[in-house]
Design a protein around this nucleic acid. Structure first.
Length: 589
RNA sequence: GGGGCCGUAGCUCAAUUGGCUAGAGUUCCGGACUGUCGAUCCGGUGGUUGCGGGUUCGAAUCCCGUCGGCCUCGCCA
């Protein structure tokens, strides 16, 4: 046995005991005579002492140790004197007096110290990920991730869910995100796709009568990356038979409750539930950040008929005017306001109207176009007072909401309207079933085409599809969507109607989803489920701002793994076996 | 595909805004030191300023291109 304890384990209770420890040299302090080694493993740090008067040979070897060498030591646990206690170390009351030392492996000089206080560039960290993962916060994130998975499994196991694996090599369904494709050798000119989610399989498992399924599963989407978006990510995928929205939400709440307990965070007994319509109205977003108010308000009715051409033209064209009132915002400089104007421009807004409340009247910006009744209406609507500022956006509702929601979040952050450890959960429900795609001139599913419409609104499917609400629900934390799901369609007829609405012909539907449509005909029970983003949950729980900090081996923004160099070219022989040819090889410098 | 920020020693950064041999901390190497704990003290190694081109008497600095990293819009049912 190479070790009897780990490096975070020993305490005053172990004094006098003989121990063996293994780990990495975190630092060495050579006083000419006495030598101290900080020995680190994933559990902690223990100080090892080498005294020349005990064993001159051993002391000499200890003097040759360098950072990140892997060693094994044997020795006796000793209490440190009162004045030698290190309060920064959990093991700081003891030390191990070594009588044996084996160098298990030397290390080259590491490109950066695993406990460096300076922030090392992420490029470096990812290239030398094995060194980076020695850092306590990275180890901590991965361990919490593990604990969260265990919490998920324990809740679902307790409730008689069955974990079932679904294929990674599956069929491309060009709806939605771009697929990662895998060429097939046995079926030339054919491709597998990596799953964007196990959606269809889990529904088929319900048809099979498996009743309650879950899986902690990798999903793949070949889209551009973001800090909170990786091309491969993990989700907790859940599906249940004979349930309603409330059943799925209740199970999810219990899972999240347990996760929060494990992570030392709060989860409310009953999270706020708001409808999509409410969320869009007050927050401009279907993933509202509820840590602060700063509500948006549709002021179209108040400003209609005012002399401001930007507003009147917009309303005449069927647009909307929406605003936000920032308490104390009159102190914003022109430069800051210009900054916000440019900011909303990124989201497609053509401008940002503003005016300040000074004393009894409005001043600056658009103030001169807003007459007395309009000013009064706005003040009352927002409860505004002197020293506040209004921002208004006039445009198509989608643009207004997107830009104003982004502005609201930016203001909330800049004005510190919440504290960093605030946790605000909410469910968003009653999403529209479909939305109009202006570019393609057709209806698109908001969620996915297997989402059930509300049964009491089926008759509107023909006449007014945009008004039909679905049985979908999303769980949101601090403005971040952590998961979503729905009650699915279990009737072939209804599923066909929805495909029809989405402009998917019968032939097309059959080619793509025929296996699901077939399955629905063989006794599909009513069913529904949800998927929770594991990476994002861990990210929120550790307070990270990037998924890369909670994934052991993530990709960079351009989809590269700096550690392995993936993706990489393959040999011609491999291509030949697949009957593939690179038509336009990249130009090499 | 678009916009923005960045790239200087192994690492983290500086360089008086175009001017003297590109510096500092840390790492590393050597030396001193028997109670440190981010040890300390002394000395030393370490640079094609991402790469290529241009402007200039002179470029880390300005211009063009390119590579790489990050953030973001589009995209992500």
């Amino acid at each position: 046995m190479k070790r009897t304890h780990n490096c975070g384990q020993l305490s005053s209770g172990d004094v006098g005991g003989r121990v063996r420890l293994c780990g990495w040299v975190r630092s060495y302090r050579d006083h000419g005579g006495i030598v101290f080694i900080d020995l680190r493993d994933r559990e902690g740090i223990t100080q090892i002492v080498f005294d020349p008067s005990d064993d001159a040979e051993l002391h000499k070897l200890a003097g040759s140790l360098r950072n990140e060498w892997v060693i094994s030591i044997a020795g006796t646990v000793r209490l440190r004197g009162e004045d030698r206690i290190n309060p920064k170390l959990p093991t700081g009351k003891i030390e191990v007096v070594a009588d044996g030392l084996t160098v298990l492996n030397k290390s080259q000089t590491v490109p950066f110290e695993p406990d460096a206080t300076e922030k090392v560039s992420e490029d470096m960290r990812l290239r030398y990920r094995y060194v980076d993962l020695r850092r306590a916060d990275m180890t901590g994130a991965l361990r919490l991730r593990h604990s969260i998975c265990r919490a998920m499994r324990s809740v679902l196991d307790e409730r008689d869910f069955i974990e079932i694996e679904t294929p990674f090599l599956t069929k491309s369904t060009p709806e939605g995100a771009r697929d990662f494709l895998v060429p097939s050798r046995l079926q030339q000119a054919c491709f597998y796709a990596l799953p964007q989610s196990p959606q269809l399989f889990k529904q088929i498992l319900m048809v099979s009568g498996l009743d309650k399924y879950y899986q902690i599963v990798r999903c793949f989407r070949d889209e551009d990356l973001r800090a909170d978006r990786q091309p491969e990510f993990t989700q907790l995928d859940v599906e249940m038979s004979f349930v309603t929205e409330a059943d799925v939400m209740e199970v999810t709440n219990e899972v999240l409750q347990k996760i929060c307990r494990v992570a030392g965070k709060e989860f409310p007994a009953a999270p706020t539930v708001l409808t999509y319509a409410e969320a869009m109205d007050k927050y401009g977003s279907d993933r509202p950040d509820m840590r602060f108010e700063l509500f948006l308000r549709d002021v179209s009715q108040i400003v209609k008929g005012c002399s401001f051409k930007v507003f009147s033209d917009c309303l005449a064209a069927g647009g909307m005017v929406k605003g936000v009132c920032v308490p104390g915002g009159a102190k914003f400089t022109r430069k800051e306001i210009d900054g916000y104007t440019a900011f909303v421009g990124d989201y497609g807004a053509k401008g940002l109207a503003w005016c300040k409340v000074e004393g009894d009247g409005f001043a600056g910006g658009a103030a001169k176009f807003l007459d007395e009744p309009v000013q009064t209406g706005l003040r009352e609507a927002f409860g505004a007072g002197a020293g506040d500022i209004f921002f208004f956006l006039a445009d198509a509702p989608a643009t207004v909401n997107k830009a104003l929601a982004a502005l609201r979040c930016r203001l909330g952050e800049e004005l510190q309207l919440f504290s960093p450890d605030d946790f605000a959960w909410c469910w968003v429900t009653e999403f529209p079933l479909v939305e109009w795609n202006e570019d393609q001139q057709r209806w698109d599913s908001l969620h996915h085409p297997f989402t059930s419409p509300r049964p009491d609104q089926l008759e509107m499917l023909q006449a007014d599809p945009g008004a039909v609400r679905s049985r979908a629900y999303d769980i949101v934390l601090n403005g971040v969507e952590l998961g979503g799901g729905s009650i699915r369609i279990h009737s072939t007829d209804l599923q066909k109607r929805i495909f029809g609405l989405l402009g998917i012909s019968e032939d097309e539907a059959h080619a793509r989803f025929g296996f699901l449509l077939d399955a629905l005909q063989f006794g599909a029970p009513p069913h529904g489920g949800i998927a929770l983003g594991l990476d994002r949950i861990v990210m929120m729980m550790v307070g990270a701002t990037s998924l890369r900090d909670v994934i052991a081996f993530p990709k960079t923004q351009r989809g590269i793994c700096p550690l392995t160099g993936a993706p990489a070219e393959v040999e011609d022989k491999q291509l030949a076996e697949l009957d593939l040819k690179i038509i336009a090889p990249p130009q090499k410098a």
